[in-house]
Design a protein around this nucleic acid. Structure first.
Lengths: 204, 204
DNA sequence: TTTGTTAATTTTGTATACAATAATTTAAAA
DNA sequence: TTTTAAATTATTGTATACAAAATTAACAAA
């Protein structure tokens, strides 16, 4: 029936809907975002929609009332930060990752070798998520989370184009972490992200 | 007369006022923030105040409708990120900083040796600002900016207590940058920030 | 055409009213 | 007293109306 989840406030729900519209291309890059129009489509007033938009602006998904269209420079800048933070996280992971998480990490590699595209997308995202969580630093996790939306838009390209060695690189990182070699894990992670960036920029 | 700056929207002005109230201790750590009360004090409606509060929540200056009271762990986490990003920025500065900015950097050191407390606060902030700008990466600059408010609250402690060697460390960093030694600049910056953190935590 | 200017329209910004929820107080029962 | 439940109050969440600003359209002059 027409049951609505009443738990979360409207500004939160509409945030999620709008974000998904952007990530799935329903709202494509460059589209003008008009509060009233979105509000009408969602069946709520402008007030909660306004808040959602502000949050999306914060994440960089909306810029100047338009769906972002990141330039090559934007992506390079984003990845520079990501390389620093995830590189450090990989180093932490080598020291602090527990048995079970280590196993989850390996599963991500395994599934990525034989899964469907959607599965691959998921486990590759999860691979990075496990490592970032190992930093055990909410500030860092939060910053990386904020970048996720744009990274997501971007990563689709890499997987749909089946970048060579991507999974191999994940496996190498996994091995370094398992071996407790933080130095190596960090370097491999940095190179991995740089390769990802270069490959995708090359396609554009 | 009662001239108001009409240029910027109310939500922006009130953001700045509330932020300053927090930074100057007019609103002290733990204080409950109530939209209507703030709105009344500012002579505006809740609508723009609401937006301001959301932005401050974003910066971490308001948490759970209360003025933040960062724990030691919070500060350690924040500084871990700062060390990574500003360390990298210092390395960039060694390669890319121009003559005039280099000179500004030196001025910061000079003034810090003989200025008043307020002047010292200012030039020390500026010292870091110049270096961060040298990263030439808006994403990175933006993240560090977001952390500035909490860092500001924190830095007061360090200067008012006159931490030993603080200016010397700045000068060493300046020298490394001037010499174009990125490796050294990065290491010195990281140590400097770590020392800052440790000193202030020690006082708490 | 192009340019510049005014008018029309759209869109955002702000105030206000009311609804939903959360916090607090009050009062009754154990 | 202490505890619980109900009622009250305070606060946030949402809708709506109107004002201010930005954008677009229309049209006159070069």
């Amino acid at each position: 029936m027409t049951e609505k989840k009443r738990s979360r406030p409207a500004y939160h729900q509409s945030y999620e809907v709008i974000r998904d519209w952007i990530l799935n291309g329903v709202l494509s890059a460059g589209t003008k975002i008009v509060e009233e129009k979105i509000a009408a489509e969602l069946g709520v007033s402008r007030t909660p929609v306004r808040e959602s938009i502000r949050k999306l602006e914060n994440e960089g998904l909306i810029v100047n009332k338009r769906v972002v269209k990141p330039s090559e420079k934007d992506l390079r800048n984003l990845f520079q930060v990501r390389i620093l933070l995830e590189g450090y996280s990989a180093r932490c992971a080598a020291s602090f990752l527990g048995e079970d998480e280590l196993h989850s990490l390996y599963e991500c590699v395994e599934i990525a070798r034989k899964g469907t595209r959607d599965e691959i997308m998921n486990v590759n995202e999860r691979f990075h998520e496990i490592i970032v969580t190992a930093s055990n630093n909410p500030v860092m996790i939060d910053i990386i989370d904020r970048m996720q939306s744009i990274i997501y838009l971007f990563r689709k390209t890499a997987v749909f184009s089946n970048r060579p060695h991507l999974i191999d690189e994940h496996e190498q990182i996994y091995q370094a972490i398992k071996a407790g070699d933080g130095e190596k894990a960090e370097i491999l992670m940095k190179n991995h992200l740089q390769a990802d960036l270069d490959f995708c920029l090359h396609l554009m």
